[in-house]
Amino acid sequence: MSAPAGWLASAGGAALAAGLELDAVQVGQFMVSRPIVVGALFGLLFADAQQGLILGCCCELLSLASLPLGASLPLNSTIATAVAVLMACGPARLPPAAALPVGFVAGWVHQQIETALRHGRRTLNTAVESSVRERGVVPWRRMTLRNLAQQAAVNIVVMLFWALAAGPALHRLWPHLPAGFVQALNFAWAQAPWMGLGVAFYAFGMRP
């Protein structure tokens, strides 16, 4: 794939991830947003099924013990996986040892933005109550579309930042990183499936 076509594909992948992320909380919870599904899908899309699947499996296992209970908001594993696979299989071509931690950072950044969005939605309750008192009805269709569009727009902005801005920057930065730093990332990456299995064993014994 030529470089411009590759970045265009990255932008398409970013838009797809933004849509899939809606499944995590807002629409359906059909599990199409789970890391193993996102990793496999993105791997197939970027013609590197193996790398996508490995990254997806690692993210899935490492996120198994993070449950969305009550008001707790775990790191966004959908965004983390999508960014990691885009970094590893897209035009940035980062090694997976670097792509996975970059994905975790992207998931953490999205978690902070999502927290702000959830705080901001308190105004919707007031708006709905006023609407019921004044007109007796609620414009549900408009509100739902607006709310989902807002979330999708935030997802797209976050994903595009990582795909089109951070990706090229990290691609240039990677060869200049100190050897010790690279070795540390390689070591953690080599242990990722094992650590994931350890977390999975814990998850099977955990009482939510």
Binding site: L62, Q191, G198, Y202
Partner: peptide, 30 residues
Amino acid sequence: ALVAALLLSLARVSAYRIYAAAAGAGYLAY
């Protein structure tokens, strides 16, 4: 690494911190 991750999870350490700790261990080994 599997046993360490299991033990750290039992101690309520998040998986992402466990991953960061593994990178730290790798740096010390280097």
